[in-house]
Amino acid sequence: MEKFKELVADLLEYDEVSELDMNTPMKDLDDWDSLTLLGFLAMIENEYNIQIDIPNLNVNLSFKDFYNQFLVA
């Protein structure tokens, strides 16, 4: 989870990982916009080799929910 948090914080260009709220639905984040959406999907593909098409991304999930649903082996 820590690596994922660092990657998301980097994507959102936060100075500190601690600024990241892992429990808020993605679509409700202040920084959620089209570039973040595209960057998030690209980051998941690059770092985890998982391709998720836009229609299949549930933006009602928080990053924590997403991690548990898709990235926990």
């Binding site: 679509k27 959620w32 916009d33 089209s34 959406l37 098409d53 836009i54 229609p55 933006v59």
Partner: peptide, 11 residues
């Protein structure tokens, strides 16, 4: 439509 849905209503 799917793309816009992913952006959220506010965006």
């Amino acid at each position: 439509t799917n793309y816009l849905k992913s952006l959220g209503d506010e965006t």
